[in-house]
Each structure stands twice: as C-alpha cells, then as structure tokens.
C-alpha cells in the first residue's frame, strides 16, 4: 500500500469516527446520570437538517453547527420533559424521539434535497497540511478536533470535577443523592441537554463535513452504533474513543475495498459490517458473566419520583 493510500484511509477513518464519537460521548454522560436516551438517531437527524438548513440559507457552516447543537438540545428537552418531569418510560420515549427526528428531518429537509452547501472545511490553513504528517495532524475537519478535545474534557469532568462526581452519584443511586440534597431531576436535565447538543453536533458532521449535500435519513442508523458503543465501552470515555475509531475503521472498509478494486466480498456485505459488528460486540459483552452490567450506572433507565 502506498503512503498516499494509507493517509487517505486514515483521513476517512477520522471522518467516519468523529460523529459517532461525538454522539456516543454525549450519550455516555446522559447514561452516567442514570437516563437512557434511545433517541440518539433522531436527535442526530434533527441536528443534521438544522445545520444544513442554516448553512444553506445563511451561507455560514459554523452558524449551522451551532444551530445543530441547539436543535439537538431542543429535541432532548422534549425527551427530558416527558421522561424526567412526567416520568414516562425512557425506552418508549427514546424510540418515539427517533421516529420524530426522522419525520422532522424529512419535512424540514424536503426543499433542500439534492442541494449542496459550503461545508466546514478544515480547521488549519492548507499550508500546514502539505506533507504527509501535516495532513495527518492538521488536515482534518474542525469537528474531529472538537471530538478529541471533548473526550479529554469528559474524562476530566467525570473523574476529576465535583460536578462530575455528583452526576455519577445521581446515576448510581438517585434515592441516596436525593436524600443528601442533590437535585436528581436538575442534574439529569443538564445531562440530557448536553447529550442532545452533542448528538446535534454529530448530526451536523454528516451534513456539513462528510456529505455537504442533503439527502433523506443522512445519518443512516449511525446513532444506533453510537448507542451500542457506549455499552461496548463499559461507560468509559477512553474505551469509547477506541471503540469509535474501531467502528469508524470498519465503516470505511467498504469504500476502500471498492477503491482498491477488491471484489472478494459484495459491497452490500461490507456495508452491513458495522451493524453486524455492533450485534456481535453486544452479544459477546452480554455473554461475559457480569459483563453487560459492569460499569453500568445502577439507576440506568429507572425513573425517579421525588418523595418526602
């Protein structure tokens, strides 16, 4: 393999991994607070369409990314009101949110189908990225750097900050946290909003970076992969980072196999791989004794009603 192709592969792997890393990081924080939001895919689609619509009408991709975060958070707020304030079932509400997101993105995106926008481009000037190492270090889209920074920040927040400790405590035992005097619902709202904003940003990655062209269901089920990734990583941000790049790698296999002229496997089979890998990973983890629950917040998906 020539260095050219190696670098090309590396670049696409980073591109494919970034959105699932962003979305999964948000979901990890949400789940650490004891809430299971299965609406990741829906929030990502809402983020994607919001980003595209704003970028297409104002011409500013950056503004698009910002609005995507707000839109994702707004969708998460609906989820929060339903599950936290009204204590609806989190699984059902999350699924409904996904269906809602698919519908909204189709509706809002209808006038934009087939249109293109100016994407986010790269963060650093072209001159820095003119040799191999320059490209590897400085040639990525801005969100890739944001996602890496986010991993570090989330690790620091969860393990080092008092707020992170409180968040983990709320996810670990809502009753105990409540009796000590922490606002369980308040903490969970903040976590859910953060998760929504991250999912929205992840969505914008698809419409502003990977394919600056609108098509229906642009995220193509990647939200589900991000969800599985959180379990795969046993709720640890570093493992999440590794997992996201592993899955990103599998996802780009198809492209590169095609480009390299490999016809050993049908492209449809390769396209299926990430999803197969998701199922395989979840099965293996669940088979391990104590595996699936190890690291899982004890109050995950358990609704909390404050009592006197």
């Amino acid at each position: 393999m020539t260095p050219e192709i190696t670098i090309a592969i590396l670049m696409t792997v980073v591109g494919a991994s970034t959105p699932i890393l962003l979305a999964a990081l948000g979901e990890l924080v949400v789940e650490k607070s004891g809430v299971l939001n299965l609406g990741l895919e829906g929030m990502m689609l809402i983020g994607a369409v919001a980003a595209f619509a704003v970028a297409a009408t104002t011409g500013s991709a950056w503004l698009g990314a910002l609005v995507a975060m707000l839109a994702g958070a707004a969708a998460a707020l609906i989820f929060g009101v339903l599950t936290l304030t009204l204590t609806a079932n989190q699984v059902a509400t999350g699924l409904a949110l996904t269906i809602f997101g698919v519908g909204v993105s189709s509706l809002v995106g209808a006038p934009f189908v087939g249109m293109t926008v100016e994407g986010l481009g790269t963060l650093f000037p072209e001159s820095l990225a003119d040799d191999a190492w320059g490209r590897i270090l400085f040639g990525h889209n801005p969100l890739a750097y944001v996602s890496l920074l986010a991993v570090v920040l989330v690790v620091w927040f969860l393990n080092r900050s008092r707020a992170g400790l409180i968040l983990r405590a709320v996810g670990e035992s809502d009753e105990a946290a409540h009796s000590i005097g922490y606002s369980v619902i308040g903490v969970r709202y903040l976590a859910v909003l953060f998760g929504g904003a991250m999912a929205g940003l992840a969505g914008s990655c698809y419409s502003l970076v990977l394919t600056p062209l609108w098509a229906d269901q642009l995220t193509a089920g990647r939200g589900w992969i991000a969800l599985a990734l959180v379990v795969f990583a046993s709720w640890r941000p570093w493992r999440l980072f590794l997992g996201a790049y592993l899955f990103g790698g599998v996802m780009t296999l198809e492209l590169h196999a095609k480009a390299a002229g490999l016809s050993l496997l049908e492209p449809e089979f390769l396209a299926m791989l990430p999803y197969l890998a998701t199922i395989a990973v979840l099965t293996i983890i669940s088979l391990r004794r104590s595996g699936a629950r190890a690291g899982a917040p004890a109050c995950l998906a358990k609704p909390f009603r404050a009592s006197a």
């Binding site: 400790l165 409180i166 983990r168 405590a169 670990e172 035992s173 105990a176 009796s179 922490y182 004890a298």
Partner: peptide, 22 residues
C-alpha cells in the same frame, strides 16, 4: 446517621464522603 444509608455502591469511600459535604 440514617437507618438507610445514603451511599453510592460504585463510588469510593472518599467520593461518598465528598458527596455528603455541603
């Protein structure tokens, strides 16, 4: 000291004490 402890199983003793501080 309550009869039912307000403790977090997956956290360390020190973290539990920190959480109990105002």
């Amino acid at each position: 000291v309550f009869q039912h402890f307000s403790l977090f199983d997956a956290l360390t003793v020190l973290e539990n004490i920190a959480l109990g501080m105002d």
